[in-house]
């Protein structure tokens, strides 16, 4: 099912939680709603669920306007960060609950619930109570419950935040697998950019209620529309340098970072991802200040034109503070942002 959010606005008192937000979701797509906490992504999700009504705008499920349709009539499944399982019911009863509510005969509900349990691989847990399950298992039950009534749209509100790092990775892949298997259009709310990038077909970055960019993860990472998106995506974070275009080149202080023949002269903010630096004997020299070992990579801190910079370096050579390295920046990988509007103006 396609889903369309058309110019949604939601206010809480004087606070604008969601500001003129429009999105179009394709059938079977997994969308990541990404942004810092309090940016309005959960409000958007709740409006999709029908738990909140937008002040302005419309929500369309396929060719049906569902803006005023109550949650139970929307055909959605909802998964919460804290799982929201009914503590007094067994796993089976939890999964069956939405079915029984919609008057599905008990025999049939049991069969459907068991199918769901099969899908999320918790068959052997059906007789247990939620308190007897691990966090990862509880989240699987929550997903099974959300999917049991065969919804048209699956909504996940920070479903992995209560899990520890290892389980988070595992459950993330599991959610992706289930979503693909069922082929259901899904919206995944998260504040973790890495999570969003790994799970989503497309990501919508939201800041203060407004959509910043809606794009596939790779393209978004490569071409962030503005400084906020650039900074939000990627760890370690992108380096932002005050730079200037003059004489056909982009300069940071005295150092020429790249040629910029077509760019118009003036100040810009240059965004360089840590992995865009490559060792080059002909490049600029940098004295390593601080070294952080990540395992596969090293982060070397140094100064570039008097501004602090972090670069990813391979671990082949032993690097110590005080060593001098020569770098250049990969071609086309310097993102130039307008100093005023913070919008992307081009890359060199």
């Amino acid at each position: 099912m396609e889903v369309r959010l058309d110019r949604l606005t939601k206010r809480f008192g004087s606070v604008v939680a969601v500001d003129d937000l429009s999105l179009e979701l394709n059938d079977g797509e997994m969308i990541g709603l990404l942004g810092p906490s309090g940016c309005g992504k959960s409000t958007t999700l709740f409006m999709l669920a029908g738990l909140l009504t937008p002040d302005v705008g419309e929500i369309w499920f396929g060719d049906e306007n569902v803006t005023a349709v109550p949650p139970e009539k929307r055909g959605i499944g909802l998964v919460f960060q804290n799982y929201a399982l009914y503590p007094h019911m067994t796993v089976l009863q939890n999964i069956m609950f939405p079915l029984i509510n919609t008057k599905v005969p008990k025999q049939k509900a049991v069969v459907m619930a068991e199918e769901m349990a099969e899908l999320v691989q918790i068959r052997e847990l059906l007789a247990r109570k939620p308190s007897e399950l691990s966090g990862g298992q509880q989240q699987r039950v929550a997903i099974a419950r959300a999917l049991a009534k065969k919804p048209r749209l699956l909504l996940l509100d920070e479903p992995l935040s209560n899990l520890d790092a290892r389980l988070r990775m595992e459950t993330r892949e599991e959610i992706r697998r289930i979503q693909r298997e069922v082929g259901i259009t899904s919206v995944f709310v998260t504040h973790d950019q890495e999570e969003a990038m790994s799970i989503s077909d497309r990501i919508a970055v939201i800041r203060e209620g407004a959509l910043q960019q809606f794009e596939e993860p790779q393209l978004m990472y490569r071409n962030p529309q503005n400084l906020f998106v650039a900074k939000f995506m990627g760890t370690p974070a992108i380096n932002i340098l005050e730079a200037e275009v003059h004489g056909g080149g982009l300069y940071c202080g005295d150092i020429r970072l790249a040629g910029a023949n077509k760019a118009k002269a003036g100040k810009v903010l240059a965004g360089i991802r840590p992995e865009s630096f490559v060792a080059d004997a002909d490049g600029f020299a940098a004295t390593v200040g601080h070294v952080e070992m990540l395992g596969r990579d090293l982060i070397a801190s140094f100064e570039l034109g008097g501004q602090p910079v972090k670069a990813l370096v391979d671990t082949e050579t032993i690097l110590r503070p005080g060593n001098v390295l020569n770098f250049r920046v990969k071609e086309g990988r310097i993102l130039c942002f307008d100093t005023e509007t913070k919008e992307l103006v081009g890359s060199v």
Binding site: G50, F80, N82, P98, N101, T102
Partner: peptide
């Protein structure tokens, strides 16, 4: 938790039923 109520709402559970069930 509120989320239990929201989950129940989405699961077509009325207030009355939510209270007793």
């Amino acid at each position: 938790p509120d989320t239990l109520y929201y989950a129940a709402k989405v699961d077509a559970c009325s207030d009355w039923r939510y209270l007793w069930k």
